[in-house]
């Protein structure tokens, strides 16, 4: 009797060790797959660069982003103002540096919240089925029928366009995609034997969802989240560009482009620098996102 128990414990310990080893091996494989291609490294370097700029913005910025200097008004790039000045004589470079913070915070915050809410609701829909499922799916379809930008614009006029509000409003637009995807993924997992076993052993619904279903659907969620960060940043800058987003004193790239638009002819650098920042960030995010997708799901790479 005692020997059987010891043997059992040993085998469980061995299993656990093997599982840990497998996990670390698959993580190493993931990293290898991710950084095996130069183009992905380029994307990762770009993203890392913008993150560092956002974190160390006060040290990188050469001027206070809101202090005005009459002489710098619409000035071209010079030694003291690397990228020139804006309409109010503020240092464009410093404003762009601080704008990185706005873009990244809004993008990441909105994506995290919408991924969390969407995934939870998706698993809930898959698990409970019936009326809950149907209501959630119809709500998603209704949402898909309205361009996200229209919804966001109205919500911003209702609640005002602070950075936090912006993130929450953009999060709403992201929920349906996460919901649908996690629901579809969870449905395939629900029918598996281990979920049935967990149900039979009397575990609570939430525990089953968290311990058995969630780990198995997490990788497509990560893939979607990495792509959603870029989409959200694009949306934020777009709304700010249309003048309904982040309000003017806060330096958001979109609103800088918007206020610079009339001077495209006279001082093009004023428009083109923020455009270049936005384009570079979007491209880096996309390259990294695609890299993560390919590394997590090699079947998508095509042989």
């Amino acid at each position: 009797m005692a020997s059987i128990t010891t043997g059992k414990i040993n085998s469980i310990a061995a299993d656990k060790k093997a599982a840990t080893a497998r996990r670390s091996r698959s993580f190493r494989q993931f990293l290898h797959g991710l950084f095996g291609r130069r183009i992905v490294i380029l994307g990762a370097v770009g993203v890392a660069f913008f993150i560092l700029v956002a974190i160390f913005a006060p040290f990188i910025a050469t001027h206070d982003p809101s202090s005005m200097e009459a002489a710098a008004k619409l000035a071209g790039p010079s030694a003291s103002h690397i990228m020139g000045g804006d309409f109010y004589g503020r240092d464009l470079f410093s404003r762009l540096v601080y704008g990185t913070r706005v873009s990244l915070i809004v993008g990441v915050l909105a994506t995290l919240t919408s991924a969390a809410i969407g995934t939870f609701l998706g698993m809930l829909a898959a698990y409970t089925g019936g009326v809950v499922d149907r209501i959630l799916m119809r709500a998603c379809e209704a949402f898909n029928a309205i361009p996200q930008i229209a919804v966001s614009m109205t919500l911003i006029t209702i609640f005002g366009g602070g950075m936090l509000n912006m993130a929450l409003i953009l999060c709403i637009g992201g929920i349906p995609a996460f919901l649908r995807m996690s629901r579809a993924q969870a449905l395939t997992i629900m029918n598996s034997d281990y979920v049935l076993a967990a149900k039979l052993s009397g575990q609570k619904k939430l525990i089953i969802m968290w311990k058995h279903v969630f780990p198995n659907i997490v990788s497509p969620i990560i893939v979607m989240a990495t792509q959603s960060v870029g989409m959200t940043i694009m949306m934020e800058s777009g709304l700010s560009f249309l003048g309904v987003g982040i309000k003017v004193p806060t330096p958001s790239w979109g609103s800088i482009i918007n206020e610079a638009r009339p001077y495209l002819m006279t001082s093009p650098h004023y428009v083109l620098f923020p455009c270049a920042c936005l384009a570079l960030l979007m491209i880096s995010l996309n390259l990294l996102g695609d890299g993560i997708r390919d590394a997590l799901d090699p079947s998508l790479r095509g042989e």
Partner: peptide, 16 residues
């Protein structure tokens, strides 16, 4: 991949 990630208004302004 590159064009998919560019915001339409940035492309529009640069073209302009």
């Amino acid at each position: 991949n590159l064009t998919n990630s560019l915001p339409a208004f940035v492309v529009a302004i640069v073209m302009l």
